[in-house]
Design a binder for these strands. Structure first.
Length: 511
RNA sequence: UCCCCGGUAGCUCAGCGGUAGAGCGGGUGGCUGUUAACCACUAGGUCGCAGGUUCGAAUCCUGCCCGGGGAGCCA
């Protein structure tokens, strides 16, 4: 092969009309009489290769026609503008050679179930949706570091092996640490507090582990959390920081990852409002009133919104049921052509799938209404309550001033209202739920000892933590952002397991 | 641990008491600057496992296993 410059697909705008060398993989292939079209990827993007008999020769055409999906190839050709293609360019190939063969690639050119795809996660990562998602993940991670570094925070790591449970509630993974039981960290917070009192403003950014057998779209057994901790910060300063932080992350994704968002077919309306509009700050008491429907938001009550929703859902169900019947009748007609029959069956499948989802929804809404109306004051919100609450807003909301009993032992009570603590949760819109939990920490040694006893936690294990209150205790605060939940919200992903390269959750340890 | 839904071809699914089906993917041939291309032919199955009901079970019943969603817990 003659020497030409090797470039990446991402550099195409600088190389229009030029002869270049590309190295990558065959993502898809279509053959026509004189031309083979290859959808080609090199990790930086996707483009179409055109292997024409005239230009590349009869041999190249025949060889290209045999290329299996995901064959690694080296290509020489000219970058040509073509507005019909993704990225706006295609490559007219003059020569190519195979670097690595690929036969019977397991992921077919069609829809697959999530379980099959996750069994092939190591290969699935090569495809468009995961590719776009991973680029958004990287954008978010980079933006997190930029945000904190620009504000003088130090990134410091908390240990992963710990001797005790942080908050004493969740189930932890137990391991053997040279003959002693040790647990995988469920939060870096307590260590973050120690580091903040040493370096003022710090953030812990690492993996965390929870051994709950959670089977929901919001849970993983291993996930990444960003936990800033700031000395001399009170609750209000913390809420200001949280809002500024989330707005910054969203704006960076919107600015730099439009193409990836479009590949995910993400409607960005709510992301845009969330990047600019102020986030409502609501006390727990107010949130309860909103959930119960006794307090209106912008003239709307949560229960009315749900009832409207139910009516709309039922209407759509009726429409689809009629469509289902009509399709079934058409399918029952004798003498249908195979082609026509297949098409009808395809349509019927889609209608049924949509019906299934709507029926599920129609079944759930009355339950939500009931749960909302009968919400027992003083308890934590469940998924249904969060949905009811966040549905009324087009930005994240911050719920603060929580009843002391339902929050962790280290939370600081309000001086003028000691039954409530200075904790705050940020709830994302569009059903993505809690993305941040945090607040101001207890500073008083005796108050903390009291809480440790009330929560039945082992006092000895917390001696080092209590030292932070013995020697120069100061007001301080912090919060934790669930990275995968945030990414799932950005990308409009169905499940947090799509937001991490190799998810770990109950029932999934490989690949 | 509990509740709901599911397990049929490599993949996505239909069939729900009477001879196991379609699309995609594989193979062969045709057509075509194609966009998950298209058309024809072809190969491909212990209907999750075990037991029961029945003349007859993918279909009904029971138990178990696996998966999905939710509760709990939380980021």
């Amino acid at each position: 092969m003659e020497k030409v410059q090797q470039v990446y697909i991402s550099q195409f705008p600088e190389y229009e009309g030029k002869e270049v060398l590309l190295k990558g993989w065959v993502a898809n292939r279509r053959t026509t009489k004189n031309v083979v079209f290859v959808v080609f990827r090199d990790g930086t993007g996707f483009t179409q290769l055109v292997i024409d008999k005239q230009l590349a020769g009869e041999e190249a055409y025949k060889e290209a026609d045999k290329l299996g999906l995901e064959t690694a190839i080296e290509v020489k050709g000219k970058v040509v503008r073509d507005e019909r293609q993704i990225g706006g360019f295609e490559v007219h190939v003059s020569e190519f050679k195979v670097i690595g063969e690929s036969e019977d690639y397991p992921i077919a050119k069609k829809e697959h179930g999530i379980d099959f795809l996750l069994d092939h996660r190591h290969l699935w990562l090569r495809h468009r949706r995961p590719w776009a998602t991973m680029r958004i993940r990287n954008e978010v991670v980079f933006a997190i570091h930029k945000f904190f570094q620009e504000r003088g925070f130090l990134q410091l790591d908390a240990p992963i092996f710990t001797a005790n449970a942080c908050e004493g509630t969740t189930t932890l993974f137990e391991t053997d640490f040279f003959g002693q039981p040790a647990y995988l960290s469920q939060s870096g917070q307590l260590y973050g507090e120690a580091m903040a009192l040493a370096c003022n403003k710090i953030y812990v950014f690492g993996p965390t582990f929870r051994a709950e057998k959670s089977k929901t779209r919001r849970h993983l057994a291993e996930f990444w959390m960003v936990e800033p901790e700031m000395a001399f910060y009170d609750l209000d300063m913390t809420m200001d920081l949280m809002e500024e932080f989330i707005k910054y992350l969203i704006s960076q994704v919107l600015k730099n990852r439009q193409f990836e968002l479009s590949l995910l077919e993400r409607n960005t309306t709510i992301l845009e409002s969330s990047a600019s509009k102020p986030y409502p700050r609501i006390t727990y008491d107010e949130a309860v009133e909103i959930i119960k429907g006794t307090r209106k938001v912008n003239g709307r009550s949560s229960l009315d919104v749900l009832k409207e929703d139910l009516a709309k859902t039922q209407e759509e169900i009726k429409k689809l049921e009629a469509e289902e019947k009509s399709l079934e009748k058409q399918l029952g007609t004798p003498g249908l052509g195979e082609k026509k029959k297949a098409r009808l069956q395809g349509q019927l499948g889609k209608v049924r799938e949509r019906l299934h989802k709507l029926r599920e929804r129609a079944k759930n809404i009355p339950l939500w209404i009931e749960q909302a109306e009968n919400f027992p004051y003083g308890e934590d919100f469940g998924g249904a309550h969060e949905t009811v609450l966040t549905r009324l807003f087009d930005t994240p909301i911050m719920v603060y001033k929580w009843p002391r009993e339902i929050k962790a032992f280290y939370m600081k009570p309000f001086e003028d209202d000691p039954n409530f603590v200075k904790g705050v949760d940020m709830l994302a819109p569009e059903g993505y739920g809690e993305i941040i939990g945090g607040g101001e920490r207890e500073t008083d040694l005796n108050a903390l000892l009291d809480q440790i006893k009330k929560h039945h936690l082992p006092e000895e294990a917390f001696q080092w933590y209590l030292d932070l209150r013995r020697y120069g205790s100061v007001p301080h605060s912090g919060f934790g952002l669930g990275l995968e939940r945030f990414i799932a919200w950005m990308g409009g992903l169905h499940h947090v397991r799509e937001a991490i390269p190799f998810p770990r959750y109950y029932g999934r340890l490989t690949p």
